[in-house]
Each structure stands twice: as C-alpha cells, then as structure tokens.
Simulated assay, not measured.
Amino acid sequence: MNEFNLINQRKQDHINAVLQDSGVDRQQTGFDQIQLRHCALPEINFDQLDSQCELFGHTLSFPLLISSMTGGSGSQLEKINRHLAEAAADQQIALAVGSQRVMMDSAEAQSSFTIRRYAPKVPLLANIGAVQLNYGFGLDEAKRAVNCLEADALILHLNPLQELIQPEGDRNFAGLCAKIELLAQNLPVPIILKEVGCGLSGQDIQRGLDAGVRWFDLAGRGGTSWSRIEAQRAHQPGQQALGLLFQDWGYTTPQSLHNARSFQDQARFIASGGIRNGIDMVKSVIMGGYVCGVAAPFLSPALQSTDAVIQTITEFKQAFQVAQFLVGAASTTDLFLNDALLVQP
C-alpha cells in the first residue's frame, strides 16, 4: 500500500474506532468536579443575552469551534466535511479540518478540504502535523494547506503519544521549535499549536511563545483517546498493550487551562478535549478558554446530514446560554476568566 492509501485508510480507521468503541471516549475530564455559581436574581433578560465572540475577524454566535476530525479521498470523508462546513456557516461558528497531509499528493483528497464555498463567512482552520516539519514539510506545504481552505489560521498539531503508538508513526520531534518559529515568521496567517488529547504544560506554552506562536489549543485528556485508537490499529500485541496503558496519559482540559493561566496576557487559548455540552463550555470560558473546541459529538451527525449537525450545535448553544444566564453573565466577556462564577471548595 502506497503512502497516500495508507494515510487515507488510517483516517477511515480512526472514524470507525470512534464510532465502534465507546471506550475511546474516556469520560474523565474533571468537568463534573467543577461547580458553577447559581444566580437566582441574574438581573438579565434572557432574550437579550449576548453569547457572541470574535475569532480571526469573524463574529461567532457563541464560542464554539468544531474541532479537527477528518478529510481525505472518498465520498464519506468529503461528505463529513461538507456537512460540518454547511452547519458551521448556518450557525455562525468556527470549523477546523483534520490533518491535510493526505492532500499533498492527491487532488482527489484535496477536494474534501475545499470547503470555503460552503462556509464563506466563518473562521476555517487548516491543519498539518508539526512533526511533519521533520519529514519534508515546510513553508510551501503550510501555504498549500492554508490556501486550499482559504483558512484564517493554521493548526500545527502536536501528537507525540499518538505517533509513538501508531504502527507507522513518525517519532522525530527534535528541533521542531526552530521550524515552528520559521513558519510563524513567514506564514500570512496565525499558527495555532494544538495537542490532540494529552493537554499542554506551561513549558509547552512557553516554548510556543518563544517561537512566536500566540494561539494554543490545549486539547486535554479525558475525551477521545488517540492512544487507545492507535492501539486498535497496532499489529503487535505489545504495542496494543502499550496503547491501552497510556490511554489516560496527560493533563485534563481543566488542568491545561490552569497551566495556561499565567500566560493569558500573552496568548489566546482554545479549550478542547472532552467538552461534551454547553455547561462544560461555560466552565471552560470561565477558566480562560477563549473559544471551545468540540469534535467527537459531531461525528455521527456529520455522517447523517447538515441538519443533524445543526441540531447538535443548537443543543450545545441552548445549554451554553442557559448556563450563562444562570451564573448571571450578560455576555461572554462577563464569563471570561471570572473566577467569582465558580463555587470555590
């Protein structure tokens, strides 16, 4: 199997794992241990609630980003991204695509990422793996990824655990900071450093800042475990066992938000990883998430239709606004980094 077919099949394997193995969603985020302050006299008209925020020059109806999922050759992968893009446009939220490595040598795969036509006025985020900067990728490939989407920013995803468990994983993460800095200096759109389910430490954030990055997607553990997914694809029993052993490795999203707290005046942070409803979103914004990334809950709807995705977005928005109202916050600005809205232990 050539590299293109291998990568494309891997994307399909990932989707199948999420759909078929309920244990992939670890349900260990820690959000249930965080209590919001209830306000019985909010002094707000719910119908005048302001849940909007700005992201890369676009106004979002509420701070939701459909986080990176997929893309590649095949009608199913193309259908998923189209449904997500159409729903994002309809509901005025942001959308990130999955890794675009697969499109670099395939015009057929590229079409699944050509989604600006479906979402002309919302933020779209391109995506390549940071480790690929050690395997032949550079400024040209980054620009191709951005231009394909007409993207507002480029995600460089960080996935060292996934790569170690993945049978065909790339393991050389040495010297990436200098290469990230080179991209940050020359790419015409912002770079977002994103983990894929293990969270970011303060050291990670500082290294990103030193490289000129000002956006970070924390992507904590407790939601989708990519270590567990890759364990299912492993050919050797020892590698399968290793993937399961590390399936709960890393920082949760609340822990990652805590790690990011001292950097809030230098960068913006996307809270993602195990966010499963609008209440989790409100908690994340209060703890410093500028917007909230959600992926897994949108996969099944995206396989069905644009309307199914819209319905799921609507459910997130309704819960977000009810929780926002019940803590007495008239706007998302009133939520952001407002520790007074949390019940302290």
Rank of each mutant, 00 (worst) to 15 (best):
L6S: 10
I7V: 06
Q12E: 15
G23S: 14
G23P: 01
Q28R: 14
Q28N: 14
Q28D: 08
F31I: 04
Q33G: 06
L36K: 09
R37W: 13
A40V: 08
P42D: 06
I44C: 03
L49C: 01
L55M: 07
F56A: 11
H58F: 08
T59E: 15
F62H: 05
L64H: 06
L65Q: 07
M69G: 02
M69N: 07
T70L: 04
G71V: 05
S73A: 15
S75V: 15
I80S: 07
N81Y: 07
R82Y: 11
E86M: 10
A87C: 11
Q92K: 15
I93E: 04
M103G: 04
M103V: 10
D105V: 09
S106M: 00
A107M: 05
A107Y: 04
P123Y: 05
L124W: 03
A126M: 13
A126Q: 14
N127Y: 13
G129F: 00
V131D: 04
L133V: 11
G136I: 11
G138Y: 14
V146P: 09
C148S: 14
C148I: 13
E150W: 03
L154T: 02
I155Q: 02
H157S: 03
H157Q: 00
H157M: 03
N159G: 09
N159M: 03
L161N: 12
Q162C: 04
E163M: 08
L164P: 00
L164S: 13
I165N: 00
G169W: 06
G169D: 04
R171I: 13
F173N: 03
C177P: 00
A178K: 12
A178S: 15
I180S: 06
L183C: 06
A184N: 05
A184T: 09
L193P: 05
V196C: 02
G197E: 09
G197R: 07
S201Q: 05
S201L: 12
D204V: 03
D204F: 04
I205P: 00
Q206A: 04
Q206N: 08
A211F: 07
R214H: 14
W215N: 00
W215E: 01
T224E: 03
W226A: 00
E230S: 03
E230K: 08
E230P: 04
P237A: 06
P237Y: 14
G238V: 09
G238P: 05
L244W: 09
D248M: 00
D248G: 13
W249I: 01
G250Y: 08
P254V: 10
Q255T: 10
N259T: 12
D265M: 07
Q266S: 11
F269G: 07
I270T: 03
G274R: 00
D280I: 02
K283P: 01
K283L: 05
V285H: 00
Y290L: 04
C292N: 12
F298S: 10
S300I: 09
S300C: 06
P301Y: 11
P301G: 12
T306R: 14
I313P: 06
T314Y: 07
K317W: 06
Q318A: 14
Q318F: 07
V322K: 11
A323C: 10
F325R: 08
A329R: 08
A329Y: 07
A330S: 13
S331N: 10
T332Q: 12
L335D: 01
L337K: 13
L341Y: 01
V343P: 11
Q344V: 15
